[in-house]
Design a protein around this nucleic acid. Structure first.
Length: 926
RNA sequence: GCCUAGAUGGUGGAACUGGUAGACACGCAGGACUUAAAAUCCUGUGCCCUCAACAGGCGUGCGGGUUCGAUUCCCGCUCUAGGUACCA
């Protein structure tokens, strides 16, 4: 064959590696440009066809920017801590570090094959102790910091201690726990050291707090929501319940307002910004305390509609609320306890998703509505979440549909409070219009007046105040897992203490197996003799997956540095990420945590920019086509050892389990392969249809955990990397999600062969000519230069592939072999198909593409002399009209109106209206 | 449930600012070249009616609306995908 892609691609990949063509050095004479990809988790399935989509786009952009004269930093690395490696370790006993290493090698081989222009000298791996040393170091900075609301930034904890020593807690305005003590300087000095430390922990940006987790007693471990399906563990099908646990948390809420404000100055897709805004969920309202009857307790609720306080018929506490037990009367005890037990089985997600069934239980106690001194019953219900607000809400049935449903269901009063509310015996009416009625001292006021008045009243009475609440909660930072960064903390007298900086990294200890201990402690509890100074217990939980990815873009700037996470000169030069490409599934996770850590590092002066990622592009997800098997479950919902084929599953109660698509062909399961894939089913009974086990199908995201991964290696072997690169771009808009589909790759392959043939004759000999290009050739060239430049700058890579195809067809038609044309064409195509373009560029007598610059297009070649356009009458297309360009509106008008054909359509009538668009007549209205 | 998107021929998609819907490619059908195959090239290809042509009708998930004109803007649905705090 003429176009030898294998030889060409190997040759140039080797050349780039040897010459270190893409190594980025600090160069103050050149403008910098930082193009970053969201680094992959190196899964055991290898790189799938979805990963390269974003990498190809960013690579095109990086190569384009180099051709435009920028000093481009384009690095790559691995987010190599994570749950799948740990689960694999549990199954096989292999150390996650070993499997991760293997997986990384596979990824690297696969990435190299695609011909990316990464600077591999700056590779990072989050699971490398030289890297996570700095993740631990940042954790220590967070521990040693507090958020001063006065300066509106994080400060070293020493400034807080200084304040305490000088004037006690007086005048300290901080983001902190709610149970901080009031003391003066003397009292502070008198506190024993451990009590001082306890108090400081309430201010630190990383701190210990009780939070709810999915606990699976049978596995003795905490599960991610992802691992829980319908109340049972995905692995093994065991029941899961909600349990409270002491956990490390990060005070991201301190940054809520800055995270919100910062969105205004970054060039991100509006939907992502919107998702972050909603996630942060700022709401302005008030907190109000309700006295409990015959008790000194006061229940604090947060409401965004304080104006509806006279319409309160009941209070609802989250079933986990700490006072539920004491508020429950003897008579209601059985009912309440049954309800709590039922709630424990539901995940938070289930609780939020299920709004159709109204449920709850009366505690037997009453609270006093401070506005009108009426008694209102106190209920518990699972639609109130312990983690949001105060874990208690006031029920106003006339103004809120969910409260209305609740009141209707439990026969609680529904009180109209605004004269404009309609049909409140049918449904709630959340209007803020009209004047208040049945509302005591706010009767007759409108919304704005009432809110103002009530907030003042709450303040005066000392029972509440206007308050801004954020939906966002502090981020839980501990994980009961092995394969993550150890938290650099040990416990002495029940208090956490940091390691010394020079003791970092705190390396993950070896353990015998990767399961929790028999007593339910995290896997690190198995590490024998793992003690600080041989006597103090280390923290046994590890950091979450997002820790290592919340600062990695700085490490790329100076990946080998042993003194700092990156040298300040490198940070000063590369500053921030100019273009960040990755999936929108990270919108509220990684992208928010990264902004949080960046702001924190900025506060402490370690970095220079307030926001880490200036421009963000979301590549759409390449979806997978997942296959499922159906496991029969018994009456208690326990998984049995029986699997039923897709079309027979309705006869049983089943749960769907993912099965590896690579052991399924045309939706028929390879049962022997399945037994190897899921050893726990080695003795399982398979209920077949027509002698086959048919799997269910669903389109969902391609990921190892869904076992639906398609590998790009096969495509590269068959068509080459340039074809794969262009095909992935050709598939559709970068931002759009789509299931993977290989049909059509032939067309792109044919295109590259046509490109090759522009340079070669039938005998595969070069046929270049030095003759002057003609007008038609210049037009074809400049059209593509302009189009591709516009496309790249608006990230519309799919349309440029089509345009390249048209351009090559035009040049082939013109039999164009002019050096002057082809030379520029190769440079324009190079970001997309770098290997073949390097080869052609060198055939043109150049060294390599680092010597090329992006050609400028000249508008003069693109101007057309004549233009045919349709003309319609009353919106219906009637005829094509050809005119010469550059006529002014009056000239066009006279031309058209004198035209016999148009006159005949007009039937001699005068036109009412002639519609021009860009100087063209589009429509004539008669 | 809530938040954020998406839906256009047999398929992937194009139409960038409301102005000829279906570019470009795949697939399919027919043809050329060839002993044959591969490769390459040419022609046709939204649907319906029609022997065919001319002409016509219908067409951008569904139902309405604005407009001379709507894939594009507005209102109301349906379905699909991502996120929903321990997957990454």
């Amino acid at each position: 064959m003429d176009y030898q892609f294998r030889e060409i691609e190997q040759k140039w990949q080797k050349y780039w590696a040897e010459k270190q063509s893409f190594k980025a050095e600090i160069d103050p004479n050149k403008p910098k440009y930082y193009v970053l990809d969201m680094f992959p988790y190196p899964s055991g399935a290898g790189l799938h066809v979805g990963h390269p989509l974003g990498y190809i786009a960013s690579d095109i952009f990086a190569r384009y920017k180099r051709l435009k004269g920028y000093n481009v930093l384009h690095p790559m690395g691995y987010d190599s801590f994570g749950l799948p490696a740990e689960q694999y370790a549990i199954q096989t006993g292999q150390h996650p570090a070993a499997t991760t290493e293997t997986n990384i090698n596979t990824y690297r081989r696969q990435l190299d094959q695609i011909g990316f222009s990464f600077d591999w000298s700056k590779e990072v791996r989050t699971s490398d102790p030289d890297y996570y040393k700095w993740t631990q170091w940042i954790f220590m900075q967070l521990f040693n910091a507090w958020y001063n609301k006065e300066s509106d930034r994080a400060e070293p904890i020493s400034t807080l201690i200084a304040k305490f020593e000088q004037s006690g807690s007086e005048g300290v305005v901080a983001v902190c726990d709610e149970d901080t003590l009031q003391f003066d300087a003397k009292a502070w000095a008198a506190l024993p050291d451990n009590e001082q430390q306890e108090e400081l922990l309430k201010y630190r940006l990383t701190y210990l707090k009780e939070s709810t987790v999915n606990w699976c007693p049978a596995l003795g471990t905490v599960l991610a929501n992802d691992e829980v399906k319908d109340g049972f563990s995905e692995r093994g099908g065991h029941p899961v319940e909600q349990k409270k646990m002491m956990q490390w948390s990060m005070r991201i809420t301190a940054y809520a307002e800055r995270l919100l404000k910062g969105l205004e100055q970054i060039d991100w897709p509006e939907p992502v910004k919107e998702m972050q805004r909603n996630w942060i969920g700022k709401s302005i309202g008030a907190s109000v305390r309700f006295k409990v009857q015959n008790s000194d307790k006061q229940i604090e609720v947060f409401t965004t509609r304080v104006d509806t306080i006279f319409g309160v018929s009941y209070l609802v506490l989250a079933p986990e609320h700490e006072w539920v037990a004491t508020l429950t009367t003897a008579a209601q005890k059985t009912e309440v306890e049954a309800y709590i037990a039922q709630t424990k089985k539901k995940s938070e997600l289930d609780r939020m998703a299920d709004t159709k069934t109204v449920s709850g239980a009366f505690t037997g106690s009453y609270a006093i509505n401070p506005a009108n001194n009426q008694l209102v019953p106190i209920w518990i219900a699972d639609y109130v979440l312990a983690g949001y607000g105060t874990g208690a809400v006031m029920g106003v049935p006339s103004g809120d549909q969910r409260d209305w449903n609740f009141a209707q269901h439990f026969n609680l009063p529904i009180v109209q409070i605004l004269d404009s509310q309609k049909d409140i015996d049918q449904q709630a009416d959340a209007t803020k219009e009209g004047r208040y009625i049945n509302s005591g001292f706010i009767d007759g006021m409108n919304y704005a007046e009432a809110v103002k008045h009530l907030n003042q009243w709450l303040e005066d009475e000392g029972i509440g105040k206007a308050k801004v609440n954020y939906r966002m909660r502090d981020a839980i930072f501990g994980r009961q897992r092995y394969w993550g960064e150890p938290i650099p903390v040990y416990f002495k007298d029940n208090l956490p203490h940091l390691l010394k900086e020079e003791e970092l990294p705190l390396v993950l200890p070896e353990i015998d197996k990767y399961l929790p201990t028999e007593t339910g402690e995290p896997p690190l509890g198995r590490a024998e003799g793992w003690k600080y100074e041989d006597k103090y217990e280390y923290e046994l939980s590890t950091m979450p997956g997002w820790a290592g990815s919340s600062w990695y873009w700085y490490r790329y700037m100076d990946a080998q540095n042993t003194q700092d996470f990156a040298a300040s000169e490198a940070i000063a030069y590369w500053k921030d990420v100019d273009l960040y490409i990755g999936g929108s599934e990270h919108a509220t996770g990684h992208l928010l945590y990264s902004r949080f850590w960046n702001k924190f590092l900025k506060d402490l002066g370690y970095v220079n920019e307030e926001e880490p990622f200036k421009k963000l592009i979301n590549q759409g997800m390449i979806q997978g086509r997942s296959n499922f098997v159906y496991r029969v479950v018994d009456e208690d919902g326990r998984g049995t050892n029986k699997l039923v084929s897709f079309n027979l599953r309705k006869a049983y109660k089943t749960i769907a389990l993912h099965v590896d698509v690579n052991i399924v062909e045309n939706d028929v399961l390879d049962i022997e392969a399945f037994k190897k894939f899921r050893p726990e089913f080695v003795d399982a009974e398979f209920v077949l249809e027509n002698g086959k086990y048919i799997c269910g199908v669903e389109v969902e995201k391609m990921s190892k955990s869904k076992f639906n991964v398609v590998n790009p290696d096969v495509l590269i072997a068959q068509y080459g990397a340039d074809t794969l690169r262009m095909y992935e771009m050709f598939l559709g808009p970068l931002e759009q999600s789509k299931p993977w589909n290989t049909n059509g790759i032939e067309g792109v392959f044919k295109f590259l062969r046509k490109v090759w043939r522009l340079f070669h004759n039938e005998a595969n000999e070069l046929v270049l000519s030095d003759a002057e290009p003609n007008k038609a050739e210049l037009k074809a060239l400049h059209k593509i230069i302009k189009k591709v430049q516009e496309d790249i700058e608006r990230f519309s890579f799919n349309t440029s592939v089509s345009s390249f195809m048209i351009a090559v067809n035009e040049l082939s038609e013109l039999k164009c072999n002019k050096r002057a044309i082809l030379q520029d064409f190769v440079v324009v195509l190079a970001p997309y198909a770098p290997h073949i373009c390097e080869e052609l560029w060198s055939l043109l007598g150049n060294q390599d593409l680092s010597t090329a610059t992006y050609p400028e297009f000249k508008e003069e070649y693109l101007i057309e002399d004549e233009f045919a356009y349709p003309i319609s009458v009353n919106g219906k297309m009637k005829m094509n009209l050809t005119i010469s360009l550059n006529l002014d509106e009056a000239a066009v008008r006279s031309l058209v109106l004198s035209n016999e054909q148009v006159q005949s359509y007009l039937d001699g009538k005068e036109p009412k209206k002639i519609i021009f668009v860009k100087g063209k007549i589009i429509n004539i209205v008669v």
